[in-house]
Design a protein around this nucleic acid. Structure first.
Lengths: 224, 224
DNA sequence: GTGTTTATGATAGTATTACTATTATATTTG
DNA sequence: CAAATATAATAGTAATACTATCATAAACAC
């Protein structure tokens, strides 16, 4: 199996973690720990202990833990976009491509052996719980200027483009896609923690229900 | 003008802040400060300085700053529900009531003199920026058990009920309403900070565009 | 009006966090 | 082999999120 890596905005890190053993340890252990502890309880000190390194060493890869989260989330969106690209091709009708994109966004994640040191299932849970924390900070504007949200913006733009192909007159393609990208995560979260805010069940049907909810939402509004 | 107050879940506070001068100072000053500093930068120590009291005294009203945020957000949702109740009546057709509810959710907020010590405009901005932080924590389940999200759940249920009146066969009323309640906030945030994720402009048309986006989204999907 | 409860203020202290700095020791590279 | 670089080890700092104690002032009960 070919070993792939994503070219991420290099403001996300101080030193690229994909290229060294320590860097890869930082990534894979932090995914596991943020998933287990939650982002607030996760610290570089605890991480350093578990990878048997030091806090100072971790700081040589990431300026702070917020940037590490941004990195992980950027990686996630790159991975999603890559999988949408794999699953679609330009010769398909736009509606087909939009359906596929929604499939990829909502579907239950499985470990992807192309990226050995990233546990995509845990990373998906992290994105569900922590995504909003990447931009709901006092640094949004600065982070945005540095292009740290590029992965999310690029994905949103790509799918919004398909919406416009289907109905060039629909006036809110970006709003629609950003809404459903977030809604997919939120409904998954609610199904576990605040079930009265959703009609999605927590069991294995959940992904399918979110899928059907969102597909209907999108197609109803762009085709009306 | 009659002075009103909301009966909020009493797990939200240690001592009810509406009943004392110090309590009211805590509320109004924390609204101003969280709006100005952001929730992370806001601390009880800074608050105590500004109201010329002490940290220990603030802790006699709120267990911690997370509960204070929950309190403010609960207050906000109670206020929204109250205003929807004012603006609708049971004799109206369901579609009319749903439109009105969306109006109230999206509309630009103005100071409401019925609640003298709360600056609703600032509180609205707080909810836009900080709402997700109320439930994206390791305490969600505990907080939920204590009923601290009651305001949001109650509002969601009420509006979802109207959706079901309009189309009893629509299978996702709660998901739809929780999605649009959050989308209204997110699109407002994006219009300011991440404009490429939205088609809503930052100027005074913004609220109207969000309104039109959401009204169309809701009615298209429940009437299809 | 005295005594008692209750609210607040003043002050101190603790563990944890999010860093920064320095120096020593490996490891890689030229 | 020398020089550069990466990492480890250790220490230190300011801020945060509390907890605890005691004094005083206001309110309220009789």
């Amino acid at each position: 199996m070919a070993v792939l890596s994503f070219q991420l905005n290099n403001h996300l890190f101080v030193r690229d973690p994909q290229h060294t053993q320590l860097g890869q340890n930082i990534i894979s252990k932090s995914v596991e720990m943020i998933d287990r502890l939650g982002f607030e309880q996760f610290t570089f000190k605890k991480l350093a202990e578990e990878i048997e390194s030091t806090e100072a060493s971790v700081y040589r890869y990431f300026e702070n833990k917020h940037r590490l989260l941004l990195y992980l989330v950027a990686w996630y969106w790159s991975w999603i976009e890559y999988r949408i690209d794999l699953a679609t091709n330009a010769s398909q009708p736009a509606e087909e491509r939009l359906k596929t994109a929604i499939d990829v966004i909502v579907e239950e994640k499985k470990f992807d052996p192309s990226f050995a040191f990233v546990d995509e299932v845990a990373l998906h849970r992290i994105v569900v719980s922590e995504l909003d924390k990447t931009y709901l900070t006092k640094w949004v504007d600065k982070d945005n200027q540095e292009g740290l949200f590029g992965g999310f913006k690029s994905l949103c733009k790509k799918i919004a483009g398909i919406v416009t192909e289907i109905n060039p007159k629909y006036p809110y393609p970006n709003s629609l896609i950003s809404t459903v990208l977030l809604a997919a995560k939120q409904q998954a979260f609610f199904s576990v923690h605040l079930p009265s805010l959703t009609n999605v069940s927590q069991d294995t049907n959940g992904a399918e229900q979110i899928h059907s909810f969102i597909k209907r939402l999108v197609f109803d509004t762009i085709k009306s």
